[in-house]
Design a protein around this nucleic acid. Structure first.
Lengths: 386, 386
DNA sequence: TGCGTTTCCGAAAACGTTTTCGATAGACTT
DNA sequence: AAGTCTATCGAAAACGTTTTCGGAAACGCA
């Protein structure tokens, strides 16, 4: 009743189980299995993008010829090339970057891992990265770690899975183990650290004047007459916190001012913290006459609290901070800061990375320091010293 | 003297031109061309990532079997699967997303085009997008148009070339022609507009309470006793500028306050502009007693200038603005704003887009409005009205 | 006119997956 | 014991490029 596909006879055809829901048949004579494949209804395929093969067919040439024409390579008749280019633009051909990347083994994409895109510092870094990357023909893929070590690890894995050509990373404050980075570095992935770097790993790094900036700010306070300078430092785990704290200590040492552990507070970027620290300081027998905040946001919080307490700034307590957001110049009193150049950090890091990608074999790790600038404003400038 | 590769004899071998720098030979008997390929020195290949084929070889099975094991699909012996998974983790196998994407025709990546990543509003939107996208297993690729129409077009093309599965876009202020979007939409690319949308295109959109927010702010000013309310509007080209301006007009109309064109200024996001506008207003015979700035930054600039001129806020002139950045609460007087929720905007837009991607066929465009909130602060609250 | 050359182009492999199709072994059924 | 079935696996095509290799035609030269 059912004919064999091959011999056309139904003599030797027997059933032979089911396969994917369909009855399967077997012709003993021909020793062949087959199914009665019903004419599948025309599934209207989604609109495909034009491919090289489409162009080749349209012109009756081989795909390789089209590829040659498009890549401006040699070994092609100028006339043929022009013709191909004409048809290509006519059909609005766009090369499939996925296919290209798969073949070439490079994606022309760099991955970026930052703790938080909403922090103006990192947003500006991103802008700098984007500028350089775009200029060099690279795309950028961004991930946020949200200050979590595990998320950071996942981010790195995701970017590696996307086969980025290189990685820019500023670590989360939780990150104390760096195996996820070392692993990729060992596999040959170019990596550049910025801002929150790690010196245990042999990567290029872009840092800021964390030590020098602290030193300059604290020295400035001292020159303004401050002798008991409190510091709102960053999380203990972060290297830059330590570096900035060291700048503070060095400035005190230079002027022979004793270090008082009671005046050192480690903030954790949590809301309300700095105010608590401030209150503790104000209850000391010897109150501070100057405050150095490692992060401008903390400085701002403290200024607001000081104003609420009707403590004169800078006469009773002078305040300085790191990082110059717009806000530093707008609050009253305006805030003396060590101005950072995050856009520069981004540019520098991206430049280093792309260099590393291009000269993978010969590249030697470099550490670059982006200059900052001391901007003196009302919060620390005592009229008495004028 | 040179032996034919095929017959081994040198009888019929003749030279036959050069090819890629090498002498080419021809055996007349065998009718075959060949070159004397010198033993190329072992180019040490770069470290490759482990592939499915590597796993297959290690276990003596077919690549397809490995694929089945990894994808948790059917048609595989549980023991075989476990064995394959064991070896896969042992070899630290990571699927090549490029190859997967190429095959599947989808990248699990969404593209985002924004005018400027450094604007806190857009940074927050991005954070919202990232959260939703990551949660749904999508990666995010970000481009900045820098408020340029041509850059925006290039951005879109680049993202399409990267074969993103969908597009989130907030237009540059230069953009008045939308062909680049319509083209992609016609090709079937899911697109969602947010913030700076365009109603000429049949896309889903996420907007804010531009009209209602303006209305609320201006009504608030009126209720505080203002009768001549100046407005610092946005660029004429932007739809949201018009919408916000309409909210302003509607509020005036409701209370029978005549519209005065002299009190309408169109800002262009350029530094110093708002101050000039303010000066012009102050030279009018009938000075304004209230100012509504469509963008909080303009409001801040004006407050600073008003303070410099020693004009009382809010007694002489009350000020309100759109968008609640941290700064609005920190300057003095603190600024009354219509608080936006950019993170929400990002979340909503990404949710819509991913829905659109997944249900490509049945999806119907939607317009969603993200609620805002009027926050009354010192810059507009007149004690007399208490 | 036969050897040597250059120019242009096509076939096919390769990148790393997934998916389709079908083969085979063994078990179950009558 | 033949017919039927299921479970499991391999081969090969496909995704869209680029690149390598080699063939063929056309041309120059002795």
């Amino acid at each position: 009743m059912v004919l064999c596909e091959k011999c056309g006879s139904d003599k030797n055809v027997i059933k032979s189980g089911f396969i994917r829901g369909q009855q399967r048949l077997y012709c003993k004579a021909c020793e062949v299995h087959f199914t009665m494949n019903l004419p599948q209804k025309g599934v209207n395929k989604p609109i495909r993008q034009v491919t090289i093969v489409d162009i080749a067919k349209a012109l009756g040439v081989a795909p390789s010829t089209v590829s040659r024409a498009l890549n401006g390579s040699s070994d092609i008749n100028p006339q043929t090339r022009l013709e191909i280019l004409r048809v290509a633009t006519e059909m609005d051909y766009r090369p499939n970057l996925l296919a290209q990347s798969l073949h070439r083994g490079e994606t022309h994409t760099i991955g970026v891992v930052i703790p938080d895109i909403e922090r103006p510092f990192f947003a500006a870094v991103l802008a700098g990265i984007q500028k350089v990357a775009t200029g060099a023909g690279y795309r950028v893929m961004i991930c946020q770690s949200n200050e979590s070590h595990s998320t950071e690890t996942l981010n790195v894995q995701a970017l590696v899975a996307s086969r980025v050509d290189g990685l820019l990373i500023s670590h989360s404050k939780e990150t104390t183990s760096f195996e996820h980075i070392k692993l990729q570095l060992k596999k040959g992935l170019p990596i550049v650290h910025f801002d929150r770097v790690c010196y245990d790993i042999e990567t290029s790094k872009v840092v800021q004047e964390d030590f020098d900036g602290s030193f300059a700010l604290v020295e400035h306070l001292i020159l303004q007459g401050c002798r008991r300078i409190a510091v709102c430092a960053g999380p203990r785990e972060l290297l830059i916190s330590t570096t900035r704290l060291n700048g503070y200590k060095a400035a005190l040492a230079k002027y022979g001012i004793p270090l008082d552990e009671e005046l050192i507070y480690h903030s954790n970027f949590k809301k309300g913290e700095p105010v608590l620290a401030l209150k503790a300081w104000l209850e000391l027998d010897q109150k501070p006459d100057g405050i150095f905040a490692v992060h401008y946001a903390n400085a701002v919080d403290m200024i607001m609290e000081l104003k609420r307490l009707r403590i004169q700034i800078p006469e009773q307590i002078a305040v300085v901070g790191f990082g110059d957001e717009l806000i530093a110049s707008l609050i009253e009193p305006s805030l003396t800061v060590f101005h950072l150049f995050p856009f520069n950090v981004g540019e520098t890091a991206a430049t280093l990375l792309i260099d590393n990608i291009i000269h993978k074999d010969t590249f030697e790790p470099v550490v670059k320091k982006v200059k900052g600038e001391l901007i003196i404003r009302e919060s620390s400038l005592r009229t008495t010293s004028l």
